[in-house]
């Protein structure tokens, strides 16, 4: 019995262009598997943004638009609302990095949550600006060395990182906000369930659903893929605890 295959929602003959060991590939595969399972391929419009996440449209076999840096939730709002005005029911999600979602696009992200915009946002948090070579970002942890914090992040000099999933959970329009990780098999499978839940909340029309995914960046962390996962398990999950911070069905 076949227990694994390339998801239908992954473009045939497409190869990920991420660095070796980067968790982006796992996250996109999970999204594709859920699109298959929920039979969303024909009604999905995905929104990619700037950063490593921008090339989403090269991999996912669904309608896709690129948004300017940080504006993915605004673009998704326009798509969702326009289709509703046209009497179409479409599934709309964004796939963004932490710099995109929580720094340059924080206003668009948070206001989409406050409006209870019926879209899903997936935010890949790798604690730096990966595509430009690993600079200090909104989620860079205290003491973390990046190319623009050579002596480590310092509260007095750089300020503090944002806990995105907790912040989005505070917005009244949010239906679901969770943080997940991809550092081992158990967490990958649980991340899949969490993304699936976020997608289902949109399908049920419950409002803004959000998943932050702690993701490795071996190249810029200067660690092996394996050690990157250990860093997430041992260090990052202490700063960014995994869990569901808002669930309108359980609250």
């Amino acid at each position: 019995m076949q227990v694994f295959n390339i998801p239908r929602a992954i473009k045939q003959n497409s190869n990920f262009t991420f660095c070796p060991g980067c968790d982006h590939g796992v996250a996109i595969r999970l999204v594709a598997q859920i699109i298959d399972e929920l039979k969303l391929q024909e009604k999905t419009i995905a929104v990619a943004s700037s950063g490593c996440s921008v090339l989403l449209y090269d991999f996912l076999d669904v309608d896709c638009i690129e948004s300017p840096h940080g504006r993915a939730c605004a673009v998704a709002t326009g798509i969702k609302r326009a289709h509703r005005a046209l009497n179409n029911d479409r599934f709309v999600f964004t796939y963004q990095g932490d710099g995109d979602f929580a720094s340059i696009g924080l206003a668009e992200s948070m206001h989409s949550a406050l409006r209870g915009e019926n879209i899903t946002a997936i935010c890949i948090n790798n604690t730096n600006y990966g595509m430009t070579g690993g600079q200090l970002g909104p989620t860079t942890t205290m003491g973390q060395i990046t190319t623009t914090s050579p002596d480590g992040r310092n509260a007095h000099y750089h300020g503090f990182p944002i806990k995105t999933a907790e912040q989005i959970a505070l917005c009244e329009g949010t239906s679901f906000s969770a943080r997940a990780a991809l550092y081992d098999v158990k967490n990958i499978l649980s991340t899949k369930n969490i993304i699936k839940k976020a997608f289902q909340y949109q399908i049920e029309g419950l409002g803004f659903s959000f998943v932050e995914i702690l993701s490795s960046c071996p190249t810029n962390w200067k660690l092996s893929p394996k050690d990157s996962h250990l860093k997430i398990q041992n260090e990052l999950t202490k700063v960014y605890p995994l869990g569901i911070f808002k669930d309108v069905k359980n609250d």
Partner: peptide, 21 residues
């Protein structure tokens, strides 16, 4: 579809997304 956007930046990007439909 009508949204009181949080900024002109958001407004034009909502327009960008909506136009794609």
């Amino acid at each position: 579809a009508y949204v009181c956007a949080e900024s002109e930046v958001a407004a034009i990007n909502m327009a960008l997304g909506a136009a794609s439909t």
